[in-house]
C-alpha cells in the first residue's frame, strides 16, 4: 500500500509541476520580468497570493514561469546523461574486450568529477549560465547511467534468447536495439526520475554558489538565492521557492521509488 502511495504521491507532485509549467507558458497572473519598484516586498494578499519580491514582481508568477526553467534544467541534464551514458553502458555491457573495459574505466574517471567541480570549471571557461549548469550536471551524471545500463545489459545478456540471437548471427547493434534496449528501458526510466530530482537540487546548489546565473526567467534555485538576503525581514520570499523545490524533488524521488518497486519483483514484499 505504501508502495502505491509513493507512486501516487510522486505522480501527483510531478503532474502538478508539469501543469504549473504548462500554464505558466501561456498565462501568469502578472508579468514575471516586469520590475515595479512601488510594489516591492508586499506580503501575501488577495492581489498577490504569495506576495511580491524585492523587485516588486509577483512571486506566484515567478514560480509559475520558473517551473519551465526548472523542468528544462532537468530534461537537458538527464537527457545529456542518458543519451551519452546509456549507449556507453550498452557497449560496456555487450563488449567484454578492451573496448568495454576502456568505457568502464573512463566512466570511473568521470565519476571522480562531482557536478560542482565541473560546474566551477565550466562556469569559469564558458561563463556561468543555466546552460553551463545543465551541461555540468548532465556530464557529471553520465557515469550513473552508464553503470545502470551496463548492469542491466549484463543481466539481459545472460538470457537464452540473446544467446540464441547471437548464435544465429544477428549483428550486435541489432541485438542491442531489438532486445537489450527494451529490456533495460524501465531501469533507465527509474534512474531518470531519480536523477531528475538530483538535477533540480544540484541546480539550486549551483545557483547558490553563483555558478548558474539566470536566463530570461530565473529558476527556483535562483529565486531562493535572491531571497536569502531577505530571510530575516521578509521570509515569505524564500518560502515559495523552497516549497516548490522540495515538492518537485520529493515528487520525482517518490515517482522513481514507486516505479522501481513496481518493476522490481525482488523488492515485492513477502505477504505476511
Amino acid at each position: 500500500m505504501m508502495r502505491r502511495a509513493s507512486l501516487v504521491v510522486g505522480a501527483v507532485l510531478v503532474g502538478l509541476v508539469l501543469m504549473v509549467s504548462l500554464v505558466g507558458l501561456v498565462w501568469t497572473p502578472y508579468d514575471p520580468a516586469r520590475v515595479v519598484p512601488g510594489d516591492r516586498l508586499l506580503s501575501p494578499s488577495a492581489t498577490h497570493w504569495l506576495g511580491t519580491d524585492a523587485f516588486g514582481i509577483d512571486i506566484l508568477s515567478r514560480i509559475m514561469a520558473g517551473a519551465r526553467s526548472v523542468l528544462l534544467v532537468g530534461v537537458f541534464a538527464v537527457g545529456i546523461a542518458a543519451l551519452v551514458g546509456v549507449p556507453l553502458g550498452i557497449v560496456a555491457g555487450m563488449n567484454s574486450g578492451w573496448l568495454g573495459r576502456v568505457v568502464v574505466r573512463a566512466t570511473d574517471v568521470l565519476y571522480a568529477f562531482p557536478a560542482v567541480l565541473l560546474a566551477i570549471l565550466f562556469a569559469g571557461a564558458l561563463g556561468s549560465s543555466t546552460t553551463t549548469a545543465m551541461l555540468a550536471i548532465g556530464i557529471a551524471t553520465i557515469p550513473v547511467f552508464t553503470r545502470i545500463a551496463r548492469a542491466g545489459v549484463l543481466q539481459v545478456m545472460s538470457q537464452d534468447f540473446i544467446t540464441a540471437s547471437r548464435v544465429s548471427g544477428i549483428g550486435w547493434l541489432r541485438i542491442a536495439w531489438r532486445h537489450v534496449l527494451p529490456n533495460i528501458a524501465p531501469l533507465i526510466g527509474v534512474q531518470a526520475s531519480v536523477s531528475f530530482a538530483l538535477a533540480i537540487l544540484a541546480e539550486a546548489a549551483l545557483s547558490y554558489l553563483g555558478l548558474a546565473t539566470p536566463p530570461e526567467v530565473p529558476t527556483w534555485g535562483r529565486m531562493l538565492y535572491d531571497a536569502q538576503r531577505h530571510l530575516l525581514n521578509d521570509p515569505h520570499l524564500a518560502i515559495a521557492p523552497a516549497v516548490a523545490i522540495a515538492g518537485a524533488v520529493l515528487g520525482f524521488n517518490l515517482l522513481g521509488d514507486g516505479l522501481r518497486d513496481l518493476l522490481d519483483p525482488r523488492l515485492k514484499e513477502v505477504a505476511e
Binding site: A33, R34, V35, P37, A54, F55, A123, G124, G127, S128, S129, T213, P214
Partner: peptide, 25 residues
C-alpha cells in the same frame, strides 16, 4: 550589478529597447 541590470532591462523594455543581460565573473 545583476539586480540593477534587471531593473534597467525591465524599464528599457517599457520604452521599446531590448536588453540582453549577461552576468560575467
Amino acid at each position: 550589478a545583476p539586480s540593477a541590470a534587471r531593473v534597467v532591462a525591465s524599464q528599457l523594455k517599457e520604452v521599446g529597447i531590448t536588453v540582453q543581460v549577461e552576468e560575467l565573473d
